[in-house]
Design a protein around this nucleic acid. Structure first.
Lengths: 153, 153
DNA sequence: CTAACTTGTGGTTAATAGTGGGTAATTATC
DNA sequence: GATAATTACCCACTATTAACCACAAGTTAG
């Protein structure tokens, strides 16, 4: 029944209490073991990254293999976890996104929610548009490198 | 149910009596066997490291494998142990952090508490900011090494 | 075509969390 | 051994968060 992946784009808005509705389609794609919980954190770009609790646990397991004795390892682990917050959605399917994440993504009210198979991104509409015109552009060289990468896996 | 790990960042303050509140989220993540107890000690950087009592016991076990004949081992073991203090939090969820640790972390009143999955760090806001701009920066080489490290585990 | 359900959005109430202070019990100091 | 200082144990206030209830627009089912 249905796909267990996140696809598509939605334009929602954050209410006065900082709550954001997660598209029903995405909530239904959550495995039972995620316990109605998404994990939000800073995205690499000017956005908010959202993972299923399962996906996040995988990431944690990977981070736990790092050594607490090595400075670079600690720094990486710290950066990866300090902004991560698990959020259980309420009976209406909404989550309250922490203020510091909203600030990082430059979000005020309206947002664009993008499904990216195993993760979700939340963008401010204007910022997204700006990125589309610049950072998102790939030249032939980029595409070629990606093609090589996927073939080797 | 829920996550049993420490994630996220909080900005709290130490009151006039030297008490610091541990985020409720972190207290709830403590296993029963930790008996409402955290172990605080010096962090590797200019901060305070906090572990669950369980995690600390693990660390002790690891230290016990070191040789008491080797000078470096003794020094490492001594350094890791001498500042460690178990703290049981009060009915409001607060702990009284030893003065020498506060001094080591350069903390006076306001602190940033960072969840790092299986450990917690307490920072002075200004010092943290300073580190963000310098020590925390990782170059491509570091990232690559970390990627290799996690893949080999 | 209509009724039942789903979905996104809004508000109200109750519980929890963080902070501050007071008093009793312990420990330390002279 | 008396006194001062520190620590532990309660009680209290306020802001934030979580749990409930409600509703209109859109969709699906019969």
């Amino acid at each position: 029944m249905g796909t267990k992946t996140f696809t598509g784009e939605f334009r929602y808005s954050i209410d006065a209490k900082g709550r954001l509705n997660i598209p029903a389609k995405f909530r239904k794609a959550l495995p039972e073991t995620s316990e109605d919980t998404f994990v939000v954190t800073r995205g690499e770009e000017e956005n908010i990254a959202v993972y299923s609790l399962d996906k996040w646990r995988e990431k944690e397991q990977e981070l736990l293999t790092l050594s607490s004795k090595l400075r670079a390892h600690r720094a990486y682990k710290r950066q990866a976890t300090r902004f991560a917050t698990p959020l259980k959605f309420d009976s209406q399917g909404r989550v309250a996104i922490p203020a510091n994440l909203l600030q990082h993504a430059g979000v005020d009210k309206d947002v664009v929610i993008i499904g990216m198979i195993d993760e979700i991104e939340i963008w401010d509409p204007e910022i997204l548009k700006r990125y589309e015109e610049t950072e998102f552009q790939l030249d032939a060289e980029d595409i070629e490198a990606i093609d090589k990468y996927t073939r080797s896996s």
